[in-house]
Simulated scan of single mutants.
Amino acid sequence: MRTCSSCAFFYGAGSRYEPAPLFNVFLEDIAKEKNEMKLLVRNLARNTTQEELSAAFAKFGSIQSCTLVMDKETGESKGFGFVEMPKVGDAKLAIKSLNGAEIDGAKIRVKKAEEAGAAPQE
């Protein structure tokens, strides 16, 4: 078997091209990458419901999950939540469109949520 020097394919005795083994590993890594984006939504009015928040983001694509963070003692909203969207492009459009938008009288802030345990970006 010989490897084509200008690409990631090798060829044998026949004329059939097959992906080189390392190229297969690369393709598997790409397939495993997450394609969804989790968004942090801050400055929500305390009376904004999960359904209202989800409806605002659904205008830009499908919603994987929508969660308001609630106070354990009072059961009331803490004024922020998370929205997960399966398509990164839809999530970016939602950020661009909804960051600074008004929902229930509050000017909300939307950005990509940081991974748990990640150092905050300055």
Rank of each mutant, 00 (worst) to 15 (best):
G81F: 00
A91M: 03
F82L: 05
E122P: 14
S65N: 07
P21I: 09
V83N: 02
K96N: 13
N43K: 13
F60D: 01
E28L: 09
M85P: 04
G61R: 00
A58R: 09
S65W: 01
Q50D: 01
N35E: 12
G81D: 06
A55E: 10
M85H: 03
R16M: 05
G100R: 08
S97T: 13
V41D: 00
G14V: 08
S77P: 04
K72Y: 07
A45I: 09
V110A: 01
I95M: 10
V88S: 11
A20C: 10
V110F: 02
S5F: 08
A20K: 09
K78F: 06
L98M: 11
S97C: 07
K38F: 00
G100K: 07
I30Q: 15
V110G: 01
D29E: 15
S97R: 12
G89V: 07
M37Y: 03
P86A: 04
D71I: 08
E52T: 14
T3S: 08
V83H: 01
S77Y: 02
G75Q: 07
F9E: 10
V25W: 05
L40C: 04
K107W: 01
F10S: 10
E33M: 13
Q121I: 07
V25S: 14
Y11R: 13
D90Y: 02
S6K: 12
K59A: 14
M70S: 04
A20L: 09
A101E: 12
L39V: 08
D90A: 04
G81T: 08
L22G: 15
A119M: 13
N99L: 03
S97D: 11
N24K: 15
E122Q: 12
T49Y: 03
A113G: 03
G61Q: 00
E52K: 11
M37I: 13
F9C: 12
N47G: 06
F60E: 01
E51N: 08
F10K: 12
K38A: 00
L27N: 15
I30V: 15
K96A: 12
G117P: 09
P19Q: 06
A45L: 01
A13L: 12
F80W: 06
F9W: 15
K34G: 09
N24P: 00
L44W: 03
M1S: 15
D29N: 15
V41F: 00
T67G: 00
E114H: 09
S62G: 09
L40H: 10
E36F: 08
C66N: 06
T67C: 07
E115I: 07
R16W: 04
C4D: 10
C66P: 02
I108F: 00
R42S: 11
A58H: 09
A94P: 08
K38E: 02
K111L: 05
T67R: 14
E28I: 06
G117I: 09
A31F: 03
G105P: 03
K107T: 13
A45C: 09
L40S: 05
A58I: 06
I108P: 04
N43R: 14
M1G: 11
E73L: 08
V25I: 14
L68I: 14
R42T: 12
D71R: 06
D104H: 13
